[in-house]
Design a protein around this nucleic acid. Structure first.
Lengths: 111, 111
DNA sequence: ATAACATTCAACCAAATGGTTGAACTTTCT
DNA sequence: AGAAAGTTCAACCATTTGGTTGAATGTTAT
């Protein structure tokens, strides 16, 4: 388990993002805070299944929950996703170098 | 399984990135092409385990292999990682909006 | 031909994942 | 107080994952 500064782990972040339901939940709460049942309504899954998905997202610190009366309100934790982007960005230069090399090579080929 | 344009799936890409060994393999081959045994030497794992990791990366189209004599040379497939970055970038605006909102709120607080 | 090297395949195992159902708990409404 | 709403917990199940070992395959060197 590779850990980042604040106890964040890329393992957990990417594992969370590997599931389409969870990506979609993130998309939803990125637009607007929602209660657990708001979220559950949108999917053909049991309440418990959604609850589990949220726990995965919470462990990865991609969302936070706060209690409001009998409801749990889910909201995006934007800083964590930034870490994932930053990780990928680190490699961008290398990818771009590869593309440039390919490009240069192609130019050496006979027309 | 959510599919992107070229048969790429974010499911597979992110699942691949969720493992530290695989992230490290990507890091290595991003710098320089390596044979399977070059890679295996760097980890305290059996050859077969590495072979499996490579199959996961191949399925996600993050690497490609080509045969050279009795060796398999592993090389980065940069375009796929770009898709993952692009996905995360899509949400960046939303995250930034959240940060801006928080920032504005903090300014309303008494000093 | 035979040995050595590079890699994969098959069978197995333990742990994790994504789902279910049903009971339990807390908060609100009447 | 009792019912309903919102959510979680526990137990279970099937599948996937990350690892192992040992045999099998293809390639190169002697």
């Amino acid at each position: 388990m590779v850990e980042l500064s604040l106890g964040l782990s890329l393992d957990n972040i990417f594992a969370s993002l590997a599931d389409p339901t969870r990506r979609d939940i993130l998309r939803q709460v990125a637009i607007k805070e929602l209660s657990v049942s708001d979220i559950a309504k949108a999917y053909n899954l049991t309440f418990a299944a959604i609850s589990k998905h949220l726990k995965v997202l919470e462990r990865a610190k991609l969302i936070t929950k706060r209690k409001e009366g009998r409801e749990q309100i889910v909201q995006l934790a934007p800083s964590t996703m930034k870490d994932a982007t930053e990780y990928l960005r680190t490699y961008e230069k290398l990818w771009n170098d590869r593309f440039d090399a390919l490009d240069a090579y192609l130019k050496t080929l006979p027309k």
